[in-house]
Design a protein around this nucleic acid. Structure first.
Lengths: 221, 221
DNA sequence: TCTGCCATGCGATCAATGATACCGCCAGAG
DNA sequence: CTCTGGCGGTATCATTGATCGCATGGCAGA
């Protein structure tokens, strides 16, 4: 019945379900639903918790590559992929509902805390795991909801990657590998911004123009 | 009528409104509502857009202190305060609804882009304004929704501040660089250091050599 | 094997709500 | 004065969340 509800939730255009339709799809009548879940809210909570099971299974299948920081990155991307694959379920799980008793979000937080604790064990964490988890999860949900609102965004990996880098660089200690990821490009971008901001006396105008074009070439991915 | 709907939305426990109740509160009958807004969705869209007006008024009242970066920080905090003061309206405005025609979020994005463009004019922005706005707004909404789900979080300013710092430090140039007496020279020095550190593929060797000499000329006192 | 009980499911129904068809009223044009 | 068009209201429909009382079937115990 939970799965029927989830299917109807995914196929409905307004992300709503009708208890009647769910019962008919399963072949029972309404009172059994109210006997099992007590309420429509109860059914939705059960759907959300079931969604967490799928989410946790996805996580368990992909995590633990040995490098906890790499696992963290994969976890972020997996979260976004889950949101893209199940938009309605995702909103049910991660959007605040005033009366929800679902523990989906808390349990996802616990998963994230565990992953972050592994990072902390490797000496890669600047904040305490719970605070870091709250930060990362909020950013991840915010980005995913934005992408759900405008699904075209899923095509471009840049926004998600930017947010991921912003949050992780604030939470993780700067390992030499991450620090040297692409310092050349950032330096080029910085110099180009300075050139555009103010003039430059050390070079001739023609040289400045050529330098600009070179910097653009350096800065391009 | 929009204000009545907003009041009912704020006082309702489940963040829902009944068209009947709104009409009764105003003293008209249902068909006028459907004549004015066409739909319950239309009414909610109108409420969301009206919420944007209040939001924009709040922004206009507090912005422009002279320092665009300080304004940006104040804008983040004001956004959080708005969410705390109007949780139901906030969710209506910023939570994805499948059929919504409200432009509230887009217009908030435009406000943010304007504020970021002022930062860019001051040389304080690393990304292009639209990308930065998308990043900041997603993080802001994600944090606000988290706080709405657990209102106790509003008591502790740390989570919001952490997220704000994380995102802003990724979007804005470092204050030390901005306060630097000669940012152009330091940027040139930094790029030159990067060039010497590792190779470069985007430029031909001859071009690289010439770039090196230019950078030296820029960096010379 | 029979009997009584209890849990489970169901038809019927209620209440609330979104949405609409149709009627009446009133202002303004002719 | 009459006609017409727009505006609002009454009554109503359809959908949906939620509940009541009954039937039925399985199981424990005599």
């Amino acid at each position: 019945m939970i799965e029927a509800a989830e299917r109807q939730l995914a196929s409905s255009s307004d992300h709503e379900i009708a208890t009647r339709a769910v019962c008919e799809a399963v072949g029972v009548s309404q009172p059994v639903l109210y006997r099992l879940f007590g309420d429509k809210r109860g059914l939705l909570d059960a759907v959300a918790d079931h969604g967490y099971e799928r989410y946790a299974a996805l996580k368990a299948a992909q995590e633990r590559t040995g490098d906890p920081v790499a696992d963290l990155h994969a976890g972020w991307d997996g979260h976004m992929a889950f949101a893209q694959a199940n938009p309605a379920l995702y909103q049910l799980m991660f959007t605040p509902r005033p009366w929800s008793h679902s523990t989906a979000r808390d349990r996802v937080t616990d998963l994230l805390v565990a992953a972050l604790t592994r990072c902390a064990a490797a000496g890669a964490l600047k904040l305490e795991p719970r605070a870091a988890a709250q930060l990362i999860l909020s950013a991840n949900i915010g980005t995913a909801l934005d992408h759900i609102a405008r699904p075209a965004l899923f095509e471009d990996p840049a926004p998600s990657r930017r947010m991921r880098d912003a949050v992780f660089s604030h939470v993780l200690t700067e390992t030499s590998a991450r620090q040297d990821a692409d310092p050349l490009r950032t330096a080029a971008l910085r110099l180009r911004a300075q050139l555009q901001l103010g003039g430059i006396e050390a070079l001739e105008p023609v040289e400045t123009a050529l330098l600009q074009r070179w910097l653009e070439r350096i800065a391009q991915p």
